[in-house]
């Protein structure tokens, strides 16, 4: 279980550029939750995921993962339990290394960095099998450098790298936003398949309200560094985009924004 207690993040504190990106977030994520997160540009969604992953320290608050306080744990140590996929398909892989070399790094995630061979036949077999499950034909291109792959193929590979050693928590930040519509649908299905096959607790940011309602068992809406809507189960299943908008209008008292544009529906 993941617990955020009064988590705040202010960028450029005490300068003219001060930005309160997160304002005292309290959040309890149950094991096996698949949470979708929506909100306008600058709402703080990425900052929330970056805080959980440890990209930067918090201004205030605590993060507990499986009853360990990880607030001050460096990013690379948290990565043992956290898998991530970003919007930019270039961010998740090493372009100059081959498909199998990239995946071997993922397979070695929880073992010591030693002078043992990074790849052997046993590992190649595991890699091949996992690649054939995602059904893109990559299992026959183990020796191909990743820089030669398409964005969609890379994103599928990144997803596999993030989950080949099952993480306690999977963080997805608009991971299909840079792909063409057909490829995006494929990667979304693949995401769904991997998450439900392994029951991975997941937070997924999306700008697509339909996806936010379609996927997962719980949905958060963020605005100006706060979580303003948190629905799950039956409430989420019955929720419609129009109804969401109404709740949003009621909660967003500042009113001078065009709500449709904030939610990227315009």
């Amino acid at each position: 279980m993941l617990k955020l207690i009064n988590v705040s993040k202010t960028f450029n504190q005490n300068t003219v550029n001060e930005t309160k990106a997160l304002k005292g977030i309290d959040l309890k994520v149950q094991n096996n939750d698949f949470i979708t997160i929506v909100g306008g540009n600058g709402a703080g969604k990425s900052t929330l995921l970056n805080s959980i992953a440890g990209v930067f320290g918090l201004s205030k608050g605590k993060i507990i993962l499986s009853s360990n306080d990880i607030t001050d744990m460096p990013e690379y140590k948290r990565a043992k339990f956290i898998g991530r996929v970003f919007q930019d398909p270039l961010m998740g892989t090493s372009p100059d290394m081959t498909i199998e070399e990239n995946l071997s790094l993922a397979l070695n995630k929880n073992s010591k960095l030693t002078l043992k061979w990074a790849l052997n036949n046993k590992k190649r077999k595991i890699i091949k099998q996992n690649l054939s499950e995602i059904d893109l034909g990559l299992e026959n291109r183990l020796d191909t450098k990743v820089k030669l792959l398409s964005g969609g193929q890379r994103q599928a590979l990144t997803l596999l790298m993030a989950t080949i050693i099952e993480p306690e928590l999977l963080l997805l930040d608009e991971h299909t936003a840079a792909l063409d519509p057909a490829t995006a649908i494929k990667i979304k299905d693949l995401t769904q398949q991997i998450i439900s096959n392994h029951n991975i607790t997941t937070l997924m940011i999306t700008h697509d309200m339909k996806d936010a309602l379609k996927f997962g068992n719980r949905m958060l809406m963020m605005n100006h560094g706060d979580i303003i809507i948190d629905i799950n189960g039956k409430t989420k299943e019955k929720m419609t985009i129009d109804h969401l908008l109404k709740i949003f209008q009621k909660k967003n008292k500042q009113g001078f924004y065009n709500d449709r544009s904030i939610l990227s529906l315009a």
Binding site: A53, E75, Y76, K77, A79, K80, G83, R84, L90, M91, G92, T93, S94, P95, D96, M97, L105, A106, N108, K109, N110, L113, M161, A162
Partner: peptide, 11 residues
């Protein structure tokens, strides 16, 4: 090649 990826692999 990609230090951010390496960190995300717990290195």
């Amino acid at each position: 090649d990609n230090p951010a990826m390496v960190r995300s692999m717990a290195i």
